Amino acid sequence: MKKLFVHKPLFRLLSPLFSGTLVYLFILLINNNIDELGINFFGQELYVCIGLAYLIQEYSRISIIVFSRLKKPSSFLVKTVLQIVSTIAVNIALVSFAMYVYFSKVLFYTPNSRELLVFNSIFSVIALIYVMLYVSHQFLYMVNTDKLEKEEWARKEVEDDFSDFKRGVNPELFFESLETILVTMKSNPDKAEEVTDRFAMVYRYLLSQKKNELVPIETELKILEELLPLFSELPYRNIQMGKVMVKETLIVPGSVLRIIENIMRTTIPSETKELVIDILEMDNNINIQYIHEEKIHKSLNINELKSICKDYRFYTSQMIQVIHEEVYKNIYLPKLKIA
């Protein structure tokens, strides 16, 4: 939201001229001497009213700045009441002091209670208008901020839903698999049918597990046995499982599959050398380990696993880790249990 207009230099310069003139007219009306308006409109009293308007408006503006920076009280209503009371109290003190100085030093007599009441009432209204402008501005800011936060939350929710849908569909793997099936059908229809069955099983699992928060790792490993041969049908991506030493534990559906796919896509393709992946169990982690030969322009790091990290943050404070060693690269996936 833009800055409140009372802080603009042009407003600070011109506003007291109009408000001071208006105060002078009010005082003439109250004193029933409006007939003198045409004779001495630019008299000394007008300049006094304008000067007081500058003083009160600048003080009101400073009080707005001070209260906007106060962190206590935290209640918006209490802070508003305190601001109104303190602003009007100091405003009365300033106006009374200025009037005593003017009347005693210039007019050489002490102002009576009626004159002080008139000046204090009018200038207190001006100070109150300033406070109300600030309060309304803050209230509007709070309402708009709340609406923007709700819109931002809704936007993120839509983006998350779309990301979940995209991860479930996995368009890159989807089209690569279809292309492989189309090519294989021309040379080996039986093998194409086998690839199609694997492809259907993997995608049936990815789509059916979207509603499940956690699944046993054994379920994921069974689908992984179908996914790795499917990867091997893609050009120059021969992958096989090495050691699989894990007991019963829970994982986020699709997390192991996505990690294996990221490993495949960041490893240099080879027609002869196979990529061997071990899945080992540690005290608090599942260690996915492989000998890394990564592409020059793309390597597997924690940024590549942001979506998986985001899923795991709902269930554990333990972070997913990617450790790059001289020979092996290790991805540590937290073990999950239902309390």
Rank of each mutant, 00 (worst) to 15 (best):
F42M: 01
Q289P: 12
V78Y: 06
E271R: 02
T219Q: 15
Q321D: 14
E58R: 04
E176D: 09
H7R: 15
E176I: 10
P253M: 02
L82N: 05
L17P: 02
P111T: 00
S177R: 08
Q57C: 12
I181T: 05
I65T: 06
P253Q: 05
I251T: 08
Y109S: 07
A154K: 06
V85S: 02
M241W: 10
K2W: 01
A154H: 09
L230F: 03
L224N: 03
I34E: 02
L10E: 13
P16W: 07
K243W: 00
K71R: 15
N120H: 08
Q240N: 08
I263R: 07
P9N: 10
M245I: 01
D311V: 02
F76M: 07
V183W: 01
E115V: 05
F231Q: 12
D283H: 13
L227W: 02
F67Y: 09
D278N: 15
N112V: 07
S307Y: 06
F139H: 10
R155D: 11
G168N: 08
E193L: 15
V169N: 03
E261L: 06
L116Q: 01
P73M: 15
I259Y: 04
I288M: 14
P111Q: 01
D283Y: 11
V81I: 14
Y203G: 02
L94T: 07
S104Q: 01
R167C: 09
L182G: 01
L10G: 10
T145Y: 00
L82V: 13
K156P: 09
E58N: 15
D164Y: 08
T267M: 14
V252A: 05
L250P: 10
P189T: 10
I263A: 10
N285E: 08
L280I: 13
E45I: 00
L22A: 07
F108M: 07
G43Y: 10
E294S: 13
N188D: 14
S307F: 03
E226F: 14
W153P: 00
R114P: 00
S232H: 10
F231M: 12
V6G: 00
D311F: 00
E194C: 06
L336T: 08
L70C: 07
D160F: 07
N32E: 04
Y205R: 06
E248A: 01
L128W: 11
P9K: 02
K105W: 02
F139I: 13
P334G: 08
L228T: 13
Q138I: 00
L55K: 14
N144S: 01
F108C: 03
A339N: 08
L173R: 00
Y203C: 03
I217Y: 03
L228V: 10
